[in-house]
Design a protein around this nucleic acid. Sequence first.
DNA 1: GTTGTAGATGACTGTTTAGTCAAGTTCGAG
DNA 2: CTCGAACTTGACTAAACAGTCATCTACAAC
Lengths: 203, 203
Amino acid sequence: MSRGDARDRLVQAAIDLIWTSSYGAVSVDAICERAQVRKGSFYHFFASKDDLVVTALDTHWGTRRPVLDEIFSASRPPLQRLQRYFAHISERQGEVREQYGRVLGCFHHAVGSECVQKPTAVAAKAQELSLALRRYLETALRDAQGEGALPPGDPVAAAKSLFAFVTGALTQARVHDDLELLRQLPQTAWLALGMAGPPQRST
Amino acid sequence: MSRGDARDRLVQAAIDLIWTSSYGAVSVDAICERAQVRKGSFYHFFASKDDLVVTALDTHWGTRRPVLDEIFSASRPPLQRLQRYFAHISERQGEVREQYGRVLGCFHHAVGSECVQKPTAVAAKAQELSLALRRYLETALRDAQGEGALPPGDPVAAAKSLFAFVTGALTQARVHDDLELLRQLPQTAWLALGMAGPPQRST
DNA sequence: GTTGTAGATGACTGTTTAGTCAAGTTCGAG
DNA sequence: CTCGAACTTGACTAAACAGTCATCTACAAC
């Protein structure tokens, strides 16, 4: 086992275990066992369980961010960004289901809604990532309004509504291990913006 | 302390503690301390922690059900039922915030999304109640389509979308302790059904 | 007033938890 | 070869955990 390998395995084990069950149900021992790392090494790399979980949230976000950056690229028409994002969600969750055997929804959202109440570092990180994701929507909506592709209005409020719908759909998909709602997202999500359907291609 | 009082206090303590934090973060000892009941009495009334939580879910549902029955009364026009329900959500969460000092969203939904993965009695009960709630929406939508107040379509799929939006909004409201999104619900929820706005009063 | 029963009590068990630590190993730089 | 730093190890602690139990109390039925 090469240098730094154990650390990575711990982070990945934390992501796998917490995503497939929950923050509260996963112990340090369970993470260590899955990562094949001894307890002492765990605390060599991380100050606490929460420290690892924060790192896990950041690491996971690090894998999603470039994908989102591409989808929400400013070089793309704003409504097309959203359209691609909605399509991406069900594709992505299909991959997750293949990898983990189950639809899991959004990692940091699941952690976040479990840990909201006591303001720990974990809760703060989860909220930070949640907000970062919402801002992608916000920017796309603002741009869409700017070029008249969407009727004027408060883009922050619209992004909140749309985000609520998306996260709600992801959570339902997780609870019922059902991709159906997500597959409909490219059609139905536009309704939450007051549009009858997806925008027409302007080729 | 009169007969059965301790049992009720245990159930209420479980609701309070779990709703304000999470299932995994609340211990039997914490519930006992809050209810001012000794450990032995706990296991006199309940076979296990999970047994109490199932009872707590049922008890809480028992307080919401008559309210929902009234709102979704068949003697009311179906779109008016939905309109009242959307209004009720933000009113109710306003009450919750006053009582608990924080917006908490939906009790059984929070428990359910935390416990989905391992099929326990708690997870089963939470899913049962979640489905029961969704059926109120389903019936109203079917009735609305039946009398032509809503364009024809699959009422089950429409109820799923609407339910995703409502639960998403409730979860966001919980995470950010923010009633704003819920206050907008009576306006925005109709969009998820493909309608421009709330139905007109037919007096 | 004896007895049955529902409830209350606190001390108990065994397990799991997060986190610690001293003593090891590995390995590259000087 | 030597040294130090990065890393590993397994045994350890103290607290928290769910759940048990014999014993006590209150009270209602007879």
